[in-house]
């Protein structure tokens, strides 16, 4: 079960409710988040409220993603570098969802998502974290020894991300479904890097190790 780490948003509420007070007459507490209806409509249905993620519809958590990385991925989906795999519907859905977004709208969505509080990542996989630690050595060059990422190298943080989502992405990089497009420079780097992982067990092991960094 995923919960918002931060409750400060809700702490601002004050309860005015008494038992059996009229629901329709309740003076609801308001908090202007200066939100963009676009972000709400476009993202929340699949990625959950405030980007907490929803694995049931294949929507990874978005809260806490670096804005520069998020922007690049939205542009990647729009350019059809991502989401082309024929056997995975959520990827296709993401592609069509952003196909009509303008540059301004992407900026708008990214800056709105940046206001969402990071969530605890889903940890669903089990693997050998010791073996994963050894495998991670080749990841650390770009993603950092603590998995915090490195914007200069275009490598996002790995801590804070859902393991089921990272497992899927590693497989996509391996098959070339992600990172196979010559215009996707960073994806190509990652595709080359991921060849260090030989098997599904390796993927589970390295993700088990990344889970320990959270």
């Amino acid at each position: 079960m995923k919960k918002l780490i931060s409750s400060c948003l809700f702490a601002l509420f004050f309860s005015i409710t008494t038992q059996h007070q009229s629901v329709s007459g309740q003076q609801y507490d308001k908090l202007n988040l200066d939100s963009q209806p676009l972000s709400n409509k476009v993202c929340a249905t699949c990625h959950g409220s405030y980007g907490v993620g929803n694995p049931i519809v294949g929507g990874p958590s978005l809260a806490g993603l670096e804005p520069w990385y998020l922007k690049r991925q939205l542009e990647g989906f729009r350019a059809k570098h991502r989401g082309n795999e024929t056997d995975y519907v959520p990827g296709n859905e993401m592609q069509v969802s952003v196909a009509r977004l303008s540059d301004n709208e992407i900026e708008e969505v990214v800056s709105f998502i940046a206001t969402w509080k990071p969530v605890e990542p889903e940890q669903t996989l089990s693997g050998d974290a010791n073996n994963g630690s050894a495998l991670y050595a080749s990841c650390a060059a770009c993603h950092g020894i603590n998995g915090m990422g490195n914007e200069l190298l275009g490598a996002p943080a790995l801590v804070g991300r859902d393991d089921w989502y990272m497992a899927r992405q590693l497989k996509l990089f391996m098959s070339g479904n992600r990172g196979g497009n010559p215009d996707d420079v960073y994806g190509q780097q990652m595709r080359a890097g991921v060849q260090a992982l030989g098997s599904e067990q390796d993927i589970n092991d390295v993700l088990a190790y990344i889970n320990t960094m959270n």
Partner: peptide
């Protein structure tokens, strides 16, 4: 763009379960 809170004695929820997650 505004956020609200509501208290009720009972909740009946027909949001699709796959979205409720």
């Amino acid at each position: 763009g505004m956020k609200y809170k509501i208290q009720a004695d009972y909740c009946f929820n027909c949001i699709p379960s796959h979205l409720m997650t």
